[in-house]
Design a binder for these strands. Sequence first.
RNA 1: GCCCGGGUGGCGGAAUUGGUAGACGCGCCGGACUCAAAAUCCGGUGGUAGCGAUAUCGUGUCGGUUCGAGUCCGACCCCGGGCACCA
Length: 862
Amino acid sequence: MSRYNARATEKKWQSVWTENRSFATTEDRSKPKYYVLEMFPYPSGRIHMGHVRNYTMGDVVARFRRAQGYNVLHPMGWDAFGMPAENAAFENKTHPATWTYQNIDNMRRQLQELGFALDWEREFATCDPTYYAHEQAMFIDFLEAGLVYRKEASVNWDPVDMTVLANEQVIDGRGWRSGALVERRKLSQWFLKITDYAEDLLTALGDLDRWPQKVRLMQENWIGRSEGLRLFFDLQNAPAGYDKLEIYTTRPDTIFGASFCAIAADHPLAQSLAANDPTLQAFIEECRVTGTSEEALEKAEKKGYRLTVDAVHPFDPSWKVPVFVANFVLMDYGTGAIFGCPAHDQRDLDFARKYDLSVIPVVVPDGEDAATFQVGNTAFVEPGKLANSRFLDGLTVEAGKADVAARAEAGGFGERTVNFRLRDWGGSRQRYWGCPIPVIHCEACGIVPVPKADLPVKLPDDVTFDKPGNPLDHHPTWKHVNCPTCGKPARRETDTFDTFIDSSWYFARFCSPTAATPFDREAVDYWLPVDQYIGGVEHAILHLLYSRFFTRAMRKIDLLGIDEPFAGLFTQGMVCHETYRAESGEYLLPEQVERIGEGQWHHADTGQPVTVGRSEKMSKSKKNVVDPTNIIDTYGADTARWFVLSDSPPERDFEWTAQGVEGAWRFSQRLWRLVTGLTEHAGAINQPANQSAPETIGDDALALRRATHKAIAAVTRAIEDFHFNRAVALIHEYVNSLNDFKPTGSADSGFAVREGLEALVIMVNPMMPHLAEELWHGLGHVTLANDSPWPKAEVALLVDDSVTIAVQVQGKLRDTITVAKDMDQKDLEALALGLEKIQRTLEGRAVRKVIVVPNRIVNIVV
RNA sequence: GCCCGGGUGGCGGAAUUGGUAGACGCGCCGGACUCAAAAUCCGGUGGUAGCGAUAUCGUGUCGGUUCGAGUCCGACCCCGGGCACCA
């Protein structure tokens, strides 16, 4: 029998789809709409297996929903601004635009080879001025709507290269190219007011019932709502204007355990005192050496500097606590100042032990004696009863919080506050390859937005990357413009947008990608929200939160009428592969090694032994990558698609193995042989005899029909639930039943086979669309599998007459019996007790109880 | 450091609401076909003991709840993702 030739066949059907414009979005409003979107790729140069996995899942959903009768939108585009293009420009002397558009061409071709049902007519790249012009217009509207403002913020500064570094470019506190110690530096930047929506972004998570619970939890914690108290401490010995210190606490109940106050290095009080205190100045400088990432700040050794200032306890004028500048207090959170209660906060405790401050337990665990309870090196953070706290003694933590807050408010030295961990979104980047921020700085008029008629502010092409820093700053003419308001010479903003801004509204642009405005209102009203969004879990917080905010911001300027961009979200796991190392220690590509036995590998050319490392995320540095193009050339796109859907549950990491691809390839061949082999028994199509089940049907044909309809029901459910690996297993099982079926040549047999084959081909279609088209064609159809409706399961064929029931003694399986479904419980019990194996196990012991779970289990308790 | 997730045979994994642990695939073993190989087809395959019927252990570790726990509860160990300028 001939083999299925994937390469030729895939090309053929791809041409047919293109000619038919099979995936162009229809504007058929009579059908329910379904918008499926995968996170668009950064055009790094080549598609990697992570993309293949992501876009295959999206493609399954798109084709499945289309078959179910939905009007499907499934677009693709490019998240095309970003650092790698500038790095390439620096390293290879190619212009970022040239590099990016070449990469896009390559990657588009790779995606098309995979046969994805994408509407390429809607493609765009975020670096196209036709895209970012609208982003600039929206920014100006946001500015007018009060959604953006300027503020000083810290950046990583490389003092040798004289440039701002991304956190990723800071390695062990040093610049990645210069090796110089990085310092934090303040810069005036644009901020988007995401905190205006903190409460809303938090509460709306509750309605996102088609989002993974873990993503909602991560966002909830990221937003970090806390109810606390702003509390004022009088200061002694403080400089003029600093007679009060405002702190924020979520534990006002522990106020009598206070043993110090601490302020951030950036706090105005610290800055003021540093003017006359060189040691303090040096300490603040030292705090600045830490990077800006939260991880770097948190992991840094907790250090403090004792100020000459004291704070007066708000409930006792005679009680004074020392005030420190501490590197673990963040200016961005709360008020940039805290009071420390070492007994009930681990960080405060570590700090107190280091600087020899008192540790007064004021919360005592239930059942402990307040007089003797002590805290060692672990802070007590559980609930308990308040003690050593004067008027609070005996209260619970909660009651204590309320009491302190009430007294502070009544006394005018405190105020209840809701605080968020979420900070405003810094949107400025000191880089070339991003969307220019459309404002002009004028000495006379201040900040002037570029008039909308002058948009887009395009990036200049003639830039150089020979010196570090922002090429827009170095450009001889670009930034020199006249003020649109007063006409005098002014300076164009040379910062560009954070690329997260580009990706915060692209899903809306896809609804009407050529609109003269960001998007047509009618189009977004119809298509949004995205019904199913799919992407990596690494985007669980930032990208998804920014997009949720941006949608609200766009609503505020009346561009659309919804709050939530993504009704359904699925986050997929990474693609991993074993790592291989030669004796020299260098990493080897999977194609450079050869398996010579169980766990034994050697170098394919030299025969040198190779050590195999554990499976890790595919990465260029570890060389554990497999190029999708090689796989498509060897096995075809369908094999690659089928394999990435098999085995691993989509939300978990996927392990790429050579044997796995082989297995997938063998299955495609097996399917080909099965269907082509059975086709002659299946009878011709479009004959009245084949349109409904024959009135009399033999046992074998009936059994096959049951298997068919069970498979339809189970596969449909599995795809709906994103259990693609289960769908694959179910199709395997069903193929096994079809394989075992012996056609008799009678009408009922022929009907069952044809019904089964057609259902099988359509069920396989979302996953292996080229093979499905070929098989569909082979079955005699002139229409496309792609245009065929999803099969429907007949409910009557889904239930069995008999069930197998487990019989347990003391919860341990001892036997099984097959009985009629829904058998009477008493009869079942008697039957189970009468089983020989059960009698042997019981050894005459008296039965105390029998638990019967209908159609499932009988458990005998002795 | 903080937040989130995961851990089941040799491997990837399956297992409605707590109800037959190991579906399906890979690998391996045996057989058929073949001059031979590849491909394909058939059978077997969690560990231990046993010729076998069978017994017993077994879902990261320890403990608990229950007639019954991979699933629920508590403590711990290991691996992965995110931490605001990577995308």
